[in-house]
């Protein structure tokens, strides 16, 4: 990774970047009622490992990578104020199609809504920062042409912000782990140091998943029923801290 790419990834991966992710637990908040007991560190790690290996890796990561590739087909010449070129229109349409595929393949309503809300918050920040493509893609979401899932928008905007495919996928994987462990810390399931102790193994899993190639026509194919049930339980909790 070149220094500029590393610094850009650090910028977007830092919790100081306002992307709305702090309000989402991806179902972790529903883990306790599902288990019938407070999850310990091993349970938190297993939950996140399932997310990485069986959901994010084969589903969101695939969409992110394919959107990243699609975003590069015409984006360099695009403006951000809606006056995008015909070439960029085609690139954004391709991203929107991949975006729709991911949304339709997400069985869990609460995770589907969460992916859209988190995507909208992420997009709102880039819109105000003027990241190329953000304005035009927001128009597609507003018109109903794209659902605006987080993974699709990450692929589009991180490409336009200068991250290469591997950097973008690694950053999204890092945020999944960091966000999950931060949520676990706020839920009182692990301490801050306990969360850090889980990081190396989980980031190792991310590195392994990111190293797997994504075929040009690969479709999202995640399957993580345990996490989906946890998310469904979370949505019905009488007291909730997180959006999902």
């Amino acid at each position: 990774m070149k220094t500029a790419g590393l610094l850009t990834a650090l910028r977007f991966g830092d919790s100081a970047f306002p992307g709305g992710g702090f309000a989402f637990s991806q179902g972790l908040e529903g883990l306790a009622p599902l288990r019938g007991a407070t999850p310990d560190a091993d349970a938190v790690a297993a939950f996140l490992d399932e997310q990485i290996s069986h959901r994010w890796g084969p589903a969101e990561r695939v969409t992110l990578v394919r959107c990243h590739r699609a975003a590069g087909t015409g984006g360099a010449a695009a403006d951000d104020d809606g006056a995008d070129t015909a070439m960029d229109e085609g690139a954004l349409d391709a991203v929107a199609a991949l975006d729709r595929d991911l949304d339709l393949s997400t069985f869990s309503q609460t995770l589907r809504r969460g992916a859209r809300r988190n995507g909208a918050a992420f997009l709102a920040a880039h819109l105000r920062l003027g990241t190329p493509g953000a304005g035009a893609y927001r128009g597609r979401i507003a018109s109903g042409a794209a659902p605006g899932t987080l993974a699709a928008i990450q692929g589009l905007l991180w490409r336009r912000a200068g991250l290469d495919e591997t950097e973008a996928a690694a950053l999204a994987g890092y945020q999944l782990v960091a966000g999950g462990l931060t949520a676990a810390t706020r839920l009182g399931l692990v301490g801050a140091l306990g969360a850090q102790a889980l990081m190396p193994v989980l980031l190792g899993r991310v590195a392994d998943v990111v190293s797997r190639p994504v075929a040009a026509d690969e479709e999202p194919s995640g399957f993580s029923p345990y996490a989906e049930i946890a998310a469904a339980r979370q949505a019905r909790l009488p007291l909730r801290l997180f959006s999902n």
């Binding site: 070149k2 500029a4 790419g5 610094l7 850009t8 910028r11 403006d79 951000d80 104020d81 819109l127 105000r128 920062l129 003027g130 190329p132 953000a134 304005g135 927001r138 336009r160 912000a161 200068g162 991250l163 290469d164």
Partner: peptide, 13 residues
């Protein structure tokens, strides 16, 4: 792969 790719005047909304 630049730190400030195509910085455009914000906000664009």
């Amino acid at each position: 792969n630049a730190l400030s790719p195509r910085l455009s005047p914000a906000p664009a909304m």
